[in-house]
Design a protein around this nucleic acid. Structure first.
Length: 236
DNA sequence: TGTCCGATTACCT
DNA sequence: GGTAATCGGACAT
């Protein structure tokens, strides 16, 4: 097991070392962890099921590529453990978990979450402006999950390692007795066709078969399955 | 000060 | 499947 995963305890804050990793290391490990939103209406807890890594000045898909250090991207250059929230298309917010060390812009975009309980789901439905008929409509997509959790730019720069604040991260629940370990799919990121050679990097991660995932990449799943079979064959 | 456009979504045909 | 909605950030003028 990943040595950092071993340090993550259900319901406890993520260990400081978690936030010092690169975005590419942290993105798959964030899957299954819990995001907590606290408002006057109460707490909403949800499980992260899809992420994307945006790491380093060389990543042409990142807002910080080429070392672009502006008022907006400044938080990405700080040390890890904070929230980077920005407005997209004039109407949707996107939530990122900043990781890495001072001066190195690393961030993981949270693309989909699932409510942990019926009460959490009810809270998320209340926050959404539209009737979510399917799980993916409720919080499958970066803009949708921010709406569902009432996350706006007012929370930009907020520390995510401090339980009891407006927004924080904690270790996710352990899979149930019957729950087989979930398979992580690795696929190219969404909506960054302009990123040239970085557009095809498989830096999106999600739980295979989870109904809250925003975009299913059938090609990546088939390819990954073949790889697994080939590996199994060789080991026979 | 002006222009372009996005790490998207909802709703339409 | 197509596309309108809507505005702040980045950069040119």
């Amino acid at each position: 097991m990943d040595p950092i995963l071993e340090q993550i305890k259900p319901g406890a804050p993520l260990p400081p070392v978690f936030y010092r990793m690169t975005a590419l290391e942290a993105a798959p490990l964030l899957l299954g962890q819990t995001l907590v939103r606290r408002t006057e209406e109460g707490d909403i807890r949800c499980r992260i099921v899809e992420t994307e890594s945006y790491g380093g000045v060389e990543d042409k898909g990142s807002h910080a590529h080429g070392g672009r250090r502006t008022a907006r991207t400044e938080i990405m250059f700080g040390s890890g453990g904070t929230a980077y929230i920005y407005l997209i298309y004039g109407m949707y917010n996107c939530l990122n978990v900043v990781t890495g060390t001072e001066g190195d812009p690393q961030a993981v975009l949270i693309r989909a979450v699932e409510p942990l309980s019926p009460a959490d789901e009810a809270g998320m439905r209340r926050n959404r402006g539209t009737a979510a008929r399917k799980p993916v409509d409720l919080s499958g997509g970066p803009g949708k999950l921010c709406r569902a959790l009432d996350i706006t730019k007012t929370l930009n720069g907020l520390p995510l390692d401090q339980p009891g604040g407006p927004l924080w991260l904690e270790g996710g629940p352990v899979p149930g007795e019957s729950g087989a370990e979930e398979v992580i799919v690795q696929a190219p990121r969404i909506g960054i066709a302009y990123a040239e050679e970085y557009a095809a990097k498989p830096w999106r991660f999600y739980f295979r078969g989870n109904p809250y995932v925003s975009v299913i990449d059938k090609q990546a799943e088939v390819w990954q399955l073949q790889e697994t079979e080939a590996t199994t064959d060789r080991s026979l």
